[in-house]
Design a protein around this nucleic acid. Structure first.
Length: 582
RNA sequence: GCCCACGUGGAGCAGCCUGGAGUGCUCGUCACCCUGUCAAGGUGAAGGUCGCCGGAUCGAAGCCGGUCGUGGGCGCCA
């Protein structure tokens, strides 16, 4: 037997036990005669004492050596306990020590919170993964996935794998392509998501499907984006939107109870898309703090300011919000806010600082009537000492920019309460968004989303059509999105029509899919949920690399293996490929 | 494709603006000392073509240009 106990589990109650432990030498403290070793395994660390007279060679043992130690658990002498260690009341008096394998000096120390360059960490990921932080992240991730499985299995779901080698369906993100050896000149694509396959599973009568699915997108990376990410992919037959929302709400309540130890507030609020935009400027609603956007058109209906007046008469909007306590900001800081707004496309950013007695500081002060000063304060719920930020422009410009500033300022000024978990559903999405660049209507979800009310609504104003789509948002981050799908070929045709997808286009791209839908597809709907994002939220990290065992750098390189690498010309030849001169 | 920042012994940084011998800090490594430490302590030592290429200069880690790498962002991600 390699070991009788784990390092981290030993307590004072184990005193007197003969134990055999195995793990890594976390640290050695050599006092000349007596030597202390901190022995670490997955469960934690424990102190090993090597006395000079037992014939155990602890001097040649170094950091990160993998060793096996036999000895006795003993209560530490009074005054030598370590309250910082769960095992701090005891120590192991070593009687034998075997080096299982030696270690070179590690490039960095195995310790939480150490500041090491990301490439170094990724190159020596096996060292990095020894850190308790990383171990916790990966274990929690496994627990989350496990809880998802048990929750869904208990509710009649079947976990089904779908192919990694699939068909390219251009549109959306760039596909990763895999050349076919057997069909020279043809390519598989790695799935961006199993969307069509899971719908076909519904046609196949599986009724309740889920999968922890890897999804691939060949797009540029970000702090929260890798080339591949993991999605909880789920689809159910014979359901309406309400059924899906209930199931998923239950899942997240379950996950937070089991994996975070928190009972989150329920039911999750449902916020219609239009209301989300109106109150927060975005559908990634963060309900942890106030600072909601207010409409100021009424306040400025008789304004003497030319800019505001012309925005109102041209059908634009004046909106603003209060930043609690931000009246202390100096001119340079306010200027920076204005720049931040203008970088995002604002023409300007007006600011008003509320003072006692209805007075204000503002570049606009002399243009503001008493009615306007009071109106601004009451509309934004601003108090003396608060900063009011205002923008006048088209609603599509004002809302997202103010929404972004609201989020930034809340974060910057510490207005976000710790430990708050604010889930909400965003519902009643519009079906189309106008794409001014290409002068056409784009679907806000994917083109298989059911329009509310079926196909007839598509004959009217595209802007008025609702989608049976829904997002789950947590603390301002989208965790999942889904929809009820189109199961009727006639409606699907009308949607393709409205999106400018010709029958020939549709046939070429989705022919196999549309054919399946000629054979009695059931009404169905589902979701895709970013597991990496869920983990980032649970662990409170902003970097996806913290929740993935072997991530890639921003340029798509894996420093551990060096991938991607050139391949042998023979391999290319077999595939019928020849690289272009660069 | 674009913008910003960074690149200095094994790790993390300072030095650069204002050019004058690779100077410094924390940790690690090695040697010696040390029987109660837990970030052990003490003494000493080794270890760096300042990412790479080029330029101006008597002289470059430092200034200028380029390039590569990394991080963050924009575009992109239905």
């Amino acid at each position: 037997m390699m070991r009788t106990h784990s390092c981290g589990e030993l307590r004072a109650s184990d005193a007197g036990s003969e134990v055999r432990l195995a793990g890594w030498v976390h640290h050695r403290r050599d006092h000349g005669k007596i030597i202390f070793l901190d022995l670490r395994d997955a469960s934690g660390t424990v102190q090993v004492v090597v006395h000079p007279d037992v014939g155990v060679d602890a001097e040649s043992v170094q950091r990160e050596y993998c060793v096996s130690i036999g000895g006795t658990v003993e209560k530490r002498k009074p005054g030598t306990e370590n309250a910082n260690l769960p095992t701090g009341e005891i120590e192991i008096t070593a009687r034998s020590l075997e080096v299982l394998s030696p270690s070179e000096t590690p490039p960095f120390i195995v310790e939480d919170g150490v500041d090491v360059d990301d490439v170094t960490r990724l190159k020596y990921r096996y060292i990095d993964l020894r850190r308790p932080e990383m171990q916790h992240a990966l274990r929690l991730r496994a627990k989350v996935v496990g809880e998802i499985r048990s929750y869904l299995d208990a509710r009649g779901f079947t976990e089904i794998e779908t192919p990694i080698l699939f068909k390219s369906t251009p549109e959306g993100a760039r596909d990763f392509l895999v050349p076919s050896r057997l069909q020279r000149g043809s390519f598989y694509a790695l799935p961006q998501s199993p969307q069509m396959l899971k719908q076909i599973l519904m046609v196949g009568g599986m009724e309740r499907y889920y999968q922890i699915a890897r999804c691939f997108r060949d797009e540029d990376l970000r702090a929260d984006r890798q080339l591949e990410h993991t999605q909880l992919d789920l689809e159910m037959s014979f359901v309406e939107q309400e059924d899906v929302l209930q199931l998923l709400e239950g899942l997240f309540i379950h996950l937070w109870r089991e994996c975070v130890g928190v009972d989150v507030e329920q039911p999750f609020p449902r916020i219609p898309y239009a209301e989300a935009i109106r109150r927060f400027g975005t559908d990634h609603v963060d309900l942890r703090y106030g600072m909601e956007l207010a409409d100021l058109n009424e306040v400025f209906s008789e304004t003497s300011l030319g800019i505001f007046r012309s925005v109102i008469t041209s059908g634009g909007t004046i909106r603003g919000f209060a930043v609690p306590g931000a009246g202390e900001l100096n001119h340079a800081q306010l200027k920076r806010l204005e720049h931040a707004a203008m970088d995002r496309g604002a023409k300007g950013l007006a600011w008003v600082i509320l003072r006692d007695g209805g007075e204000v500081d503002s570049p606009l002060a002399k243009h503001l009537s008493e009615r306007e000063r009071n109106g601004i304060a009451s509309a934004t719920d601003g108090k003396p000492g608060d900063l009011i930020l205002m923008m006048a422009d088209k609603a599509e410009v004002v809302n997202p920019i103010l929404g972004a500033l609201r989020m930034e300022l809340a974060k910057e000024r510490g207005l976000i309460p710790d430990g708050a978990w604010k889930f909400c559903w965003i519902v009643d999405y519009p079906f189309f968004v106008w794409n001014p660049d290409e002068d056409k209507w784009d679907p806000i979800h994917h083109p298989f989303t059911m329009p509310v009310g079926g196909g007839e609504t598509l004959d009217g104003d595209p802007a008025a059509v609702r989608a049976s789509a829904y997002d789950l948002v947590l603390n301002g981050l989208e965790l999942l999105s889904g929809s009820i799908r189109i199961h009727r070929p006639d409606i699907q045709r009308k949607v393709f029509d409205a999106l400018g997808i010709s029958p020939e286009d549709a046939e070429e791209r989705f022919g196999f899919f549309l054919e399946a839908f000629r054979y009695g597809p059931p009404p169905h709907g589902g979701i895709g949920c970013g597991i990496d994002r869920v983990m980032m939220q649970m662990l409170g990290t902003e970097n996806i690399r913290d929740v993935v065992a072997f991530p890639k750098t921003q340029s798509g390189v894996d420093p551990l293996s060096g991938a991607p690498t050139p391949v042998d010309p023979d391999q290319l030849k077999i595939l019928g490929l020849r690289p272009l001169p660069s």
